[in-house]
């Protein structure tokens, strides 16, 4: 009998009775009617009959999606990087080759942008860390907890705006008739405008402007989790401000530093529009090199794919080494 009561359709949760009194013989809602339908009962009964079957249904779509949508494009890119033509013209055969990778090492013009991208990304990651750490520290430790959200939100607003609009804002800031040059001239430091634009400097300012948030948020959440009592205890034991930071705060926020740096490094290797708009011929980054193979006829795609694979694997390897190093640092600190 209790079993019967449990499955009685149109009762309890299915009929919205909790919303207030209804006319006698409670009206069936959409869900009530749906559950009462024999076809529905049959389908759900077969599909979700046991917890095992429920899990199988639940897991199938994600697995298919992840394999075909998240992994598929990367695997296809790897495949294309290993063939001699793609898309292959009708009537031609496709062959496996390593020539696309060999081309990178054969032609010197590709190596410079590659190294420049990695060095840029590494340096900018470090600079971003130095700039945002004090900001995150101030937010997490000095601002009252009720106000933290407002202070954080203030910083988030500009970061909602996309890559192009923010890059454009930097162009206006740094141009020959830009705000910085005007200010310098007005202050009497310079007579003619300083050529900030189309240099490594303008790209750096632009990319830091784009990525600072990805550093700020992990740092903030690491610092926020750190109990104030830790540094207070260190202070009671006579540690000065610098010692407290070096021996307590810094070691305990290494995890936040590691994830912030990983994110910023990976993301800054992938910017395309910012270097195109803010850079010049002497600051070509690898993203522009890769893109070049996709603007022209299709037969260059394999080379572009190979270069993209090289870039991604190198960037991932570097972040893996970096993260290993950071973990070791953490363990050493604990001993």
């Amino acid at each position: 009998m209790p079993g019967k009561a449990e499955t009685r359709p149109g009762s309890g949760i299915l009929s919205d009775e909790q919303d207030g009194p209804r006319t006698a013989g409670s009206r069936r809602t959409f869900w009530g009617a749906l559950v009462a339908a024999p076809l529905y009962q049959q389908v759900v009964g077969t599909l979700l009959g046991s917890p095992r079957r429920q899990f199988a249904i639940l897991v199938t779509l994600p697995v298919i999606w992840l394999l075909t949508q998240h992994l598929g494009p990367m695997l296809q890119m790897l495949y294309v990087s290993l063939v001699d033509s793609y898309p292959t013209a009708p009537g031609h055969e496709r062959h496996f080759t390593l020539d696309n990778y060999a081309r990178f090492f054969r032609e010197a013009i590709f190596v410079m942008p590659f190294l420049r991208t990695l060095v840029f990304a590494a340096v900018l990651t470090f600079v971003t860390l130095i700039i945002t750490y004090p900001v995150a520290y101030f937010l997490a430790r000095h601002v009252r907890r009720d106000n933290q959200l407002v202070f954080l939100l203030l910083l988030l607003i500009p970061f909602w705006v996309g890559e192009i609009v923010r890059t454009f804002a930097i162009m206006i800031l740094l141009g020959n008739n830009g705000a910085v040059n005007l200010a310098l001239k007005w202050l009497g430091f310079i007579d003619r405008p300083v050529p900030f634009m189309y240099t490594g400097f303008s790209i750096s300012v632009g990319i830091i402007y784009l990525t600072a948030l990805y550093m700020l948020l992990p740092l903030y959440s690491a610092l926020e989790k750190l109990p104030k009592s830790y540094t207070e205890a260190a202070a009671d034991l006579g540690a000065g401000a610098w010692t407290r930071f070096r021996k307590v705060t810094l070691p305990l926020t290494l995890e936040g530093i590691a994830s912030g740096c990983t994110l910023v490094f990976l993301i800054s290797t992938g910017y395309y529009a910012t270097p195109v708009l803010l850079g010049g011929p002497s600051t070509t980054v690898f993203a522009e090199t890769i893109a070049g193979f996709f603007h022209v006829a299709g037969d260059q795609w394999p080379t572009g794919a190979a270069f993209a694979c090289l870039m991604f694997v190198t960037a991932l390897a570097l972040t893996a080494v970096f993260n290993r190093f950071m973990t070791q640092l953490q363990h050493r600190g604990r001993k």
């Binding site: 494009p73 890119m77 290797t269 992938g270 993209a308």
Partner: peptide, 13 residues
Amino acid sequence: IPGIISAIAFRIY
């Protein structure tokens, strides 16, 4: 995945 790599991977896909 860095932006440019994700974009061209999808172009190929």
